[in-house]
């Protein structure tokens, strides 16, 4: 999928940078990705954005402990659930 001749396109760099976060990239791809990132500021921004997105998703994934008025069970849903548990 990663032909070294094509990795210097941003499209291929984006794919490699994303995959690197889920799996180990072959050495050749790691090197070509690093070379691309060294010369392409746009893809460097993308790469740090991936990191920001991961941090934000992990935060979102933590079970909430405090109240949030915007997202709560509706009164009807509460009543329905209560009758269900009787």
């Amino acid at each position: 999928m990663f032909n070294p001749l094509h990795i210097f396109s941003c499209r291929a760099a984006a794919e490699a940078a994303a995959r690197k976060r889920d799996a180990k990239l072959p050495l050749g791809n790691r090197i070509t990705l690093a070379m691309h990132l060294a010369i392409c500021s746009m893809c460097r921004y993308m790469n740090s954005q991936f990191e920001i997105i991961e941090a934000a998703l992990r935060k979102l994934g933590r079970p909430p402990e405090s109240g949030n008025a915007n997202q709560s069970l509706s009164a009807e849903a509460r009543e329905r659930l209560k009758s269900c548990l009787k």
Partner: peptide, 21 residues
């Protein structure tokens, strides 16, 4: 050509800030 149509911008926040934002 595989180039970005809309270039990604630099985001000001860091991953550490994102984890608390």
């Amino acid at each position: 050509m595989g180039h970005w149509r809309n270039a990604p911008k630099r985001w000001h926040m860091t991953a550490e800030q994102a984890a608390e934002s």
